[in-house]
Structures are given as structure tokens and as C-alpha cells.
Design a protein around this nucleic acid. Structure first.
Lengths: 329, 329
DNA sequence: TTGAAAGCGCTAACAT
DNA sequence: ATGTTAGCGCTTTCAA
């Protein structure tokens, strides 16, 4: 291709990389590019330069939270010439491990992922090879990675306090998978609030321990069949709340009126329903921005070696699913 | 690294590629890998072999339809050792064009994307360079690509016929962006059904022409302020239906009872609402599977040169949002 | 089965 | 500003 334009390969390379060259050569190269349908080989370039302009994002699925963080991240990285490559692993550690190896082999500039304890080794390998890793949403401790998290525990505590302020005393919690800090922290916030209000913690009011919708359905079923069922429910994520809503509808329990519901994660459907569902909103844009700042810091060499943890505040969006308990209003 | 194991680089390469070598060498190499934290360079490998095991998927966003197709595709490709790299471009042709160039430079095995007329040139470039392109969801004609589409027109016709069968005569249509075949076909199906039933086509009953929620809100507003407002609405996608539902709620119009609603795309929220929304379900799993079959066909060299178009049937999920018109039931 | 060596397409250092 | 050349890490001949 350099031959076709009658110039040296070096000149072509320079031109392609934006270095100024003589007008005549420029035109010759342009013509050769068009004639030969020339197309740069990214692999060769990456091999030579050891830089790829790729950032990997690993998610279990594209639920609303991840999709929103992803959107924010894509935009912020694109501004700096980085391409975000997303890979979905459906929560399967094997697939995830393979994806991590894949991205390591491809020398991406960074890997962004919720912490997953099963792939500790792979994360360590990445870090060892100088590929920065950023955890968000869920943590796995003792790894030398950067972290961006919502203040899960604090906002959960405030959310449950809101229920207590409305007059609720029997408050149920449907928790997420308790191997994950996200679920642990949200449950801890629940406990904090009860303790703050001197309400004894009743283990029977805690159920679920899974992120799956059908497990949440069994959980709410059990809670509502107690002799003294809860008058309010706090769920650790929106999918669990959907199961609760299912159950309420099927058993003619009026949302808000009969039993209050407050959920983590503010999603479209909560706005759309009537009554609307009171929810904890994670600022997904801010989370995406924080992640991209860390990533870009690493890429531009500004980032200090010591891992950084960014914690982000959430807010509570009040809707009609939280009201004072029956016979108290 | 070959030095550390006291074997030649060729042997190492062979071993890494699964060719049988002597036991002693194998152990030596294993030890060297561990000691040096050896990590294969995918770029070098790709450069040499001209094959990458990567398939690119380009989407404007992760709405429920795309997310489901994506899930199916990821699984099917993973079974064959292909990694799906997803990139979201938010409908911006510039970002999309850049992404296409990026993936072309990286020599992905295939590019899967809804057809977008603004990037014709880039698609042609991909095809010219032997990278197969698969369109789904939306078409751009006259390009030498494979195609997987839902039978949009036919199912839309059947959907609107369902409304007619219930007794509706004044049926409104909120269309999608009319530059896209998806929107055109759905509107054509709407017209077909009216013609079948000898109902004159009233252009005033067609509104929208945009995929945006706020445009659909204006559209339904206009339709309902007509002297003879429609008694049933057919929307070209679920986002538009959400705007209709908004409008109905704000104006105390009872969904199904006062005005019927039927939407393209069967999403979670339609199942969850009460009354549920009658919807056209695209078989996303089948779509993903059809795409992956075509892609794998190309990769394994089975695919014939002539582009193939696969058309997939949809079904209508009946719920309570479609009922006979008032004073007719 | 293995070692030696060539070469994939590119960039960067060096020389001019 | 430009030509020349080495070499990135890998696979794949060719010989042995």
C-alpha cells in the first residue's frame, strides 16, 4: 500500500496518526487508501503500541440500574476516545472468568465490574498485569481495585426510618443474595433503623436472601402468613418489589393502603404504576461519571497507585405506596 | 518466556494451541507460565491468524427488546467460542459510524445491527472487507447483508383486526419514526386491517411518527381532542404506549373500559399493570438464535454468498386493555 | 515431536 | 519532512 503511493511506510503511518506531511504525498496516500480500500489493522497497532483504547464493562444482565450506569459510562468514555465494550455473563462465574481472561488478553485499558468473589483470582491477575479494575455496585474486600458505591447502608436506614415515622412497627425486609455486600448493607441499614427506634429486631420479618423474583414471591408469602404480618415491606431491589406487588394483587391487598412498600432502585415501572412505589434512587449518572473519572485517571497516568473508593449518596423518592398503617391514620 | 522453559517458541505456541507435546516439555512450560504470569497477547495472535472470535453488536440503547435479543445472542455465540461485544450508540450516526470503523479495524467476525441508512457507506465497507453484516429489527434495502426480521406488517394487521373484531371503528395509530421500515411496516399493517374491513382510512387518526415518548404524548393528546376521538389506539412500540397510559391516567380515561390500547412489544410493565396491556410479542429468543445461526454459518464457512433473509412470526398476547368500545358491549 | 526462522502490519528510533 | 529498519508476540512453514 505504501508502494502504491510511492512513499515509505513510515510516512503513511505518520500521516495516519495525524502528523503533518507534504501536500503531494498526502494526496498520493489518500488516493492509495481509496484505491486499495485500505483499512488499518487495529491488532497490529495495539501490539506495537501496547495501548488499545478499550474499556471493558462486565454485567450479569442489563437491568435498569446497569443499563443506566452503562449509558453514562459510554458517553463519558467516548468523549475521551475510549470505546466501552460490554459483556453480559448472566451471573455465571465461569463465563465471567472467561470474559476477564479474554479482556486481559486483549489488553483493555480497564475492566469495570461488580465485585464477584468467585473470580478473585482473575481480578488479581488483571491488577498484576497492570490493568486497573473498578468495582461498582457490589464489593469484594481486600482486592487492590478502585471502587464506586452507593451509600447503601445509610440510605436504607433512612428509608426504613421513613416507614417508622409513618407509624409502622412491624416492618418486613425482603433481602437480596446475602453473599453480596449490596444485600448485606441494605439489610444492615434496615436493622440500624429499627435499633434507632428501639424496635426489637424480629428475625421472622426478614426473608428472601436472593435476587430472584420467585424467591421473593415465596418470601412475601411467608411474611404475610405470619400471625402478625408486617404492615410495611422494604425490598432490597426492584425485582423483589415486583414479586411483592404480584402477591398483593393476587391476594387483594391494597398497595399503600393495606400494606406499605418501599423498594431500593427507582425504576420506570414504579413511576408508572398507581399507586406509585416509594423508592430509593441511585444516581446512576453520577456513578457512571465517577467510574469514568477513575478509569480515565488511570489511562492518563494521573491516578495514584493507592486504590480509591468513591461513595455516592442516594435519595428517597416518595410516592403513594408508603402511608401510615391501617387504624393509625 | 520460551527461554525460561528451555524450549522453542514454536513448541510453546503449539502447546498453547492444544497440540500434543512431550510430557517433560509440557511441565516445563506450565512452570514457566506460572512463574512469569504469562499471558497470551490476543492482538498478536489476531494479527497473525487473521481471526478474532469476536462478534460485534451495535444497539441504540438497551431497551427491553434489544436486551432480550442480546441475551439470546450472547448465549448462542458463547457456545461456539465467540465473544459478543456490545456497543451502544444512542442513535447517533457519528458514534455509530465510529463504532463500525472500530470493529472493522479490529477484524471482528461479524457485525450485528439494526439497519441505519446514515451508515450505508460503513456497512458497504464492512461487506467489502469480508466482514458479514446482519441487520435485525430495522432494514435498509439494497445492501448485501443478511437479515432477520419480525413479520411486522402481518402481525400489525392481525392486531388491528382484533380491535375491529371487538367492534372498534375509530382506531388511532401512534407510529414510530417513519424513516424506519419497522415503523412503516407497522403502519402498513394498520392500514391493511382497515382496508380489509372496509373502514375508510382517516389520516387524522394517524399521529406520532417518532420513537420518542414525549412526541407520543403530544400525539395522543391531539387524537383525543378530535371531535370524534378514537375508541382504540395501536402504538408502534411500548414506549409510545407508556405515553398513552400517562395521558389516560392524567385525564381519567379508563384503560380498556373507555379506550382500548394495543401495543407492539410485550414488556414486563404490560404484564404487571392492571389492567394488563394487550401486546404483540416478538420472539426475541428465536430472533437471537436466527442471528447467531447466520453469524456462525459465516464463521464456519457454510454460509452461501447470497444474503439470506429470515422472517419470524410474532404473536398477540391478549390482556384487559382491549375490550369492545363503550355502548357496544 | 521439535527447533529455527520468516513474516503478519504496524510504530518509532535513527539517519538523512 | 521523509526513508530505512528493527521489532512488538505470535503462528507456521521448513528441516531435522
Amino acid at each position: 500500500m505504501a508502494r502504491h503511493a510511492n512513499v515509505s511506510v513510515g510516512t503513511v503511518s505518520r500521516y495516519l496518526n495525524g502528523i503533518i506531511i507534504r501536500q503531494t504525498k498526502r494526496e498520493a496516500i489518500d488516493k492509495a487508501i481509496a484505491a486499495l480500500h485500505y483499512n488499518r489493522n487495529a491488532a497490529a497497532k495495539a501490539m506495537r503500541t501496547e495501548r488499545t483504547n478499550m474499556v471493558a464493562l462486565l454485567v450479569p444482565d442489563y437491568d435498569e440500574f446497569f443499563a443506566e450506569v452503562l449509558a453514562s459510562l459510554t458517553r463519558n468514555l467516548a468523549d475521551e476516545g475510549q470505546v466501552l465494550l460490554t459483556h453480559k455473563h448472566e451471573g455465571d462465574p465461569k463465563t465471567l472468568a472467561m470474559a476477564m481472561e479474554f479482556f486481559q488478553n486483549h489488553r483493555v485499558n480497564a475492566v469495570v465490574t461488580p465485585g464477584v468473589s468467585e473470580v478473585r483470582t482473575q481480578v488479581e491477575a488483571l491488577v498484576e498485569h497492570g490493568i486497573p479494575v473498578v468495582f461498582f455496585n457490589n464489593d469484594v474486600p481486600y482486592l487492590k481495585v478502585d471502587r464506586v458505591f452507593a451509600r447503601n447502608r445509610d440510605i436504607s436506614r433512612r428509608a426504613v426510618r421513613h416507614l417508622i415515622d409513618l407509624g409502622h412497627r412491624r416492618i418486613g425486609h425482603i433481602s437480596g443474595g446475602m453473599r453480596e455486600t449490596t444485600a448485606q448493607d441494605r439489610q444492615a441499614g434496615y436493622s440500624d433503623a429499627l435499633r434507632d427506634a428501639d424496635i426489637p429486631l424480629n428475625p421472622n420479618y426478614i426473608a428472601g436472601a436472593s435476587w430472584k423474583r420467585q424467591d421473593a414471591y415465596s418470601a412475601i408469602e411467608r411474611l404475610m402468613q405470619l400471625d402478625e404480618p408486617p404492615t410495611a415491606i422494604f425490598t432490597a431491589t426492584y425485582v423483589l418489589a415486583l414479586a411483592v406487588i404480584d402477591y398483593f394483587r393476587e391476594h387483594d391487598i391494597a398497595l399503600g393502603k393495606d400494606v406499605s412498600l418501599l423498594s431500593f432502585d427507582d425504576v420506570e415501572i414504579f413511576r408508572q404504576m398507581s399507586p406509585g412505589v416509594t423508592a430509593i434512587a441511585q444516581p446512576t449518572t453520577a456513578i457512571g461519571q465517577a467510574i469514568s473519572e477513575i478509569v480515565l485517571g488511570h489511562i492518563n497516568g494521573i491516578q495514584r497507585i493507592a486504590p480509591r473508593t468513591v461513595t455516592i449518596d442516594c435519595s428517597i423518592i416518595l410516592r403513594q405506596s408508603t402511608r401510615p398503617p391501617r387504624g393509625n391514620g
